[in-house]
Computed example of a mutant assay.
Amino acid sequence: MSISIDLSGQVAVVTGGGSGIGEAIARTLAEAGAAVAIADLSPQAADRVAKEIEAVGGRALGVPMNIADRASIDAALTTVRTELGPVSHLVNNAAAWAVKLFADHTPEEVERVVGVTLNGTMAVTQAALEDITAQQGSIVVIASDGARIGERYMSAYTAAKAGLLGFSKSLAREVGRKGVNVNAIAPGTTNTPGGAGFIEQAGGAEKLAKAYPLGRIGEPQDIANAALFLVSPLSSWITGQVLSVSGGFTMV
């Protein structure tokens, strides 16, 4: 007996797919057979990942997308529909952050972090929802374990991610009877370029790893594996849930 995940014929959009966790998710969904749109603020990063996926036999498209700009979202999704087809799965990974004590945040930084991370994610989801509903697909929101327990130096980011947990659960209740699954992944500290500032501020990966029962911080592939599960038929009776992928750091 064997179990396999085959996403052939399905289209997935991964925001922030040009690096880090988003890149790992895009590559993993492509390996499972999905046509993947890598949506990123950097067109160069999105195109790089797409070309590397295509070089190994996958189907991918890089699309520039600023999730803080609804016109940019709509233009990107129009390109996706034209080039790949209607969206089956959406992985909301793009975010903004500032690594500093909250007392040192400027009002502009708070507005940017919340505007991109929370409002931007809701805007992309709303823009893609008609497609996803028609395909009876899935939505995965990359949140944060900080949203569940709090995180020093990242108060605005953590607040925005906590908002995403409430959004994910509420949306799951709205669209479940239409055949759409909505779940969130809450990563622990993960070894990405974007997370480097926090890791350094906290004393380095080796020091952080001591707090994790499994003895290490996360890698992007750890999060990608969870995302693959949540868009696959293996999770067809799971919705409105928050999955901590954190090496046991958070057990709630």
Rank of each mutant, 00 (worst) to 15 (best):
V242E: 05
T28P: 06
V87L: 09
F249A: 15
N92T: 07
T117H: 01
G188R: 13
M122H: 07
G247S: 13
A224P: 02
A156W: 01
V141C: 11
S4D: 14
A37I: 03
E130R: 15
I185P: 00
A162Y: 04
E111C: 05
G17D: 05
T78Q: 11
V242K: 00
N119Q: 12
S42M: 05
A24V: 03
R48I: 09
I142V: 13
S42D: 05
A227Y: 01
R112F: 08
S2W: 11
T28G: 08
A76N: 04
M122P: 02
I223Y: 03
R148V: 14
G195W: 02
Y153V: 12
D131P: 13
L84A: 04
A45W: 03
G248S: 13
V80Y: 02
I142E: 03
W97T: 15
I139N: 04
A24F: 02
A162K: 04
V99Q: 12
V110E: 10
Q136P: 10
V11K: 06
P43S: 02
G195I: 01
L171H: 00
S2H: 13
I38Y: 02
L41Y: 08
A147N: 04
A143C: 06
G137N: 12
I5M: 04
L41W: 07
F198Y: 15
A68Q: 06
G197M: 09
A127M: 12
W97E: 15
A45D: 09
A55I: 12
Y157Q: 09
V13S: 04
T28K: 15
T189P: 13
G85S: 04
S246P: 11
G18F: 00
N183H: 05
K169T: 10
Q10E: 15
G62F: 01
S144V: 01
D104K: 14
V63Y: 00
N225D: 15
M251V: 14
E151F: 09
W237N: 11
D69S: 03
R152I: 15
R112M: 11
K161F: 02
V36N: 04
T121D: 02
